Amino acid sequence: MNIDKRVIRAGLRSSRPLFASPRVPVGGKRLMVEMVTGAARPPRGTRFERDTIAGVPVVRVRPPHTTGGTLIYLHGGGYALGSAKGYRGLVAHLAAAAGTTAVIPDYSRSPEARYPVALEEMVAVYSRLLDDGLDPGTTVIAGDSAGGGLTLALATALRDRGIAAPAALGLISPWADLAIDVDRARPVRRDPLILPSMTADWAPRYAGDHDPRSPGISPVYGDMTGLPPMVMHTAGDDPICVDADKIEAAVAAAAGILRHRRFDDLWHDFHLQVSILAEAREAVTDLGAALRQHILTTDSDPIHPDTAKVASA
């Protein structure tokens, strides 16, 4: 099924007043996000299983055809919204494109849980999976929006704690600089749904009393030396896409590996429309194939950070 992106854009814009309203409680906004994310229908034959890892509820995703490896996917939602159940469809498509199975953790959300709760939960989940036999060389970690920022923060925490790194990171519209939102300095773009006023509300709720420039909250301010190769997708109309420029600069300064593809005239997290938007299907396929290549490269000819380049496509 294909729907013209102009129609999808209009639909997202029509929902923005409710999504942005301070009168709609967080529970109501979580239901709205479940509707948006749930529009991504999984490939036929995908199986889902509920599980618990290190005390964190997760959804295991098993596409009908896999070639090996594991995708750990950290969902978006401003650290306050989104869920493993709501993201099943998108993750199933991405895992199928990468040829892997997947695990989607239901990390604790704000305002009930603030930083560093979600980050520590993800360190615990990943560490438990390693203890249970997960091969980091055939594992990739990916996330969108807040989940993209959390993916970067997790990779940094793993490095700093001497825990084996995954083969690659996948970043979709990563929200990686909450400090500019606390300062209410994020620029306005043409996104049909996301406004800087929204991220300005979400950021302090997650950061709490911590410095929003802490790399665990805003990874763009951290040292990215020694992090796994990254594949990043952003959208030109997304106000959060400015964070990607800072990620590029930080990765370049660390002589890291980054492939960045920016999609003009598209919006924040457009990958979520994978079931109805041709551009989203192509992007998810591209991201999955790129992540798969890092798994295959790890098996045969490892890429070393000191030989890496930052590339934009």
Rank of each mutant, 00 (worst) to 15 (best):
R9P: 01
G11H: 09
A20L: 15
S21R: 09
S21M: 08
V26Y: 12
K29C: 09
L31G: 04
M32Y: 08
A39Y: 01
R41N: 02
R44I: 11
G45N: 12
V56F: 10
P57E: 13
R62S: 13
P63T: 05
P63F: 08
P64K: 13
T66D: 02
L71A: 05
Y73W: 14
Y87E: 12
L90A: 04
H93K: 11
A96G: 12
A97K: 06
T101E: 15
I104P: 07
I104F: 11
I104K: 09
Y115T: 00
P116E: 10
V123C: 09
P136F: 05
A142M: 01
D144N: 15
S145H: 08
L150G: 04
T156H: 10
A157T: 03
D160Q: 14
D160T: 08
D160M: 03
P166C: 05
A168T: 01
A168F: 03
L169K: 07
A176Y: 04
D183Y: 01
V188S: 07
R189F: 14
D191G: 07
L195H: 12
T199A: 14
T199K: 05
A207Y: 12
G208V: 02
G208D: 07
S214W: 09
P215S: 09
Y221S: 03
T225Y: 04
V231M: 00
V231L: 04
D237G: 03
D238E: 06
V242R: 06
D243E: 12
A244Y: 03
V251G: 00
V251D: 02
A253Q: 13
A255N: 15
W267S: 01
T285E: 15
D286S: 12
T297K: 12
D306H: 14
K309C: 03
A311L: 15
